[in-house]
Amino acid sequence: MELRKKIDKILGNALIVIMSVMVVNVLWQVFTRFVVGTPSSFTDELARYLMIWLGILGAAYVSGRNMHVAIDVLPLRSSSKTQKKIKLLVYSLIIVFAFLAMVIGGIRLVYITYILEQYSPALQVPLAIVYAAIPLSGLLIIYYKVSDIIKIK
């Protein structure tokens, strides 16, 4: 569980940095638009990409902290043995989804955009870097849920 705490700390700090950069970026955009009179050309695109990373990595962080939205009416009315079985089922389904949709699908997306050499219009950043948040987040979610399954048993 020591590794999980380190990953939580690194991921939490990364999310803080991303959010901080996003706030400064948007403030700069507002300043250049309304004070200077000519909006900055890169800020809109940077804010969009930072929001993607923040949202997707934030989902992994929340999943690791078990703070995600859940409907717990059925488990609360069940015995502790049944609650364990429900948790195992739910965590297993989350692992399958994260692996198939986020890791496999995300890697395919990153690969395709890398091979096609797609770059963002204003920043000229490879879109593969932007989309790399998807498989990374999927791997983090899988790690967290496998760790939760180990804790249950």
Rank of each mutant, 00 (worst) to 15 (best):
R33S: 13
I142P: 01
Q118E: 13
I107S: 10
G12K: 01
T43P: 01
I7G: 05
V73K: 02
K151Y: 05
I104Y: 15
V17Q: 06
S147N: 13
G58M: 02
V130A: 08
R4A: 10
P135I: 01
R4I: 06
N13H: 14
F34I: 11
I115E: 09
M67Y: 13
Y114S: 10
F31D: 04
S20M: 10
L123K: 07
R65L: 11
I107C: 10
V130N: 00
Q118T: 12
A122Q: 14
R108T: 06
L139R: 00
S120Y: 08
F34V: 14
Y111Q: 10
V21L: 11
L76N: 14
I107V: 14
L116P: 00
R77N: 13
L50A: 05
S63N: 13
Y61L: 04
S80V: 10
V17G: 06
L127V: 03
A60I: 03
L89E: 04
F99P: 05
M19F: 14
I7L: 10
F34L: 13
Y49E: 02
G64A: 04
S147G: 09
S79I: 03
I107E: 07
N66D: 15
V62S: 09
Y131W: 15
L3P: 05
V125N: 06
L11E: 03
R77D: 09
A60F: 01
P39S: 14
L50I: 01
K151Q: 12
S79M: 05
I115L: 12
A14K: 03
Q29P: 04
W28K: 04
K81A: 13
K9T: 04
H68E: 14
D148L: 10
I152T: 06
E117N: 15
Y119V: 07
L109F: 15
A98I: 02
I10G: 05
I152E: 11
S120T: 13
V35L: 13
N13F: 09
N13K: 15
V110Y: 10
L123S: 01
V130Y: 08
P121A: 12
W53I: 05
P75M: 07
L89S: 11
F97D: 08
R108Q: 10
F34Y: 15
V146C: 11
K85E: 09
I10K: 03
Q118H: 14
R33H: 10
D44M: 14
P121E: 02
V17N: 05
V21N: 00
G138W: 02
V36W: 10
A122Y: 08
R77A: 14
L109E: 01
V17A: 11
S40R: 02
G64Y: 01
F97P: 00
R4H: 13
V110M: 10
S137M: 04
G106L: 04
N25P: 02
I71W: 08
I141P: 03
Q124F: 12
M22G: 04
Y114E: 07
V35K: 06
I152V: 14
G105R: 12
T43L: 02
L11V: 00
K84L: 15
K5A: 12
G64H: 02
I10N: 00
Y119W: 08
S80P: 00
P126M: 01
M102V: 06
Y111C: 00
Q29S: 14
G37A: 12
I56T: 01
I95C: 07
P135H: 06
S63V: 07
K85S: 14
V69W: 08
V103M: 08
Y49W: 11
L93C: 12
G37C: 09
L116C: 03
D72E: 12
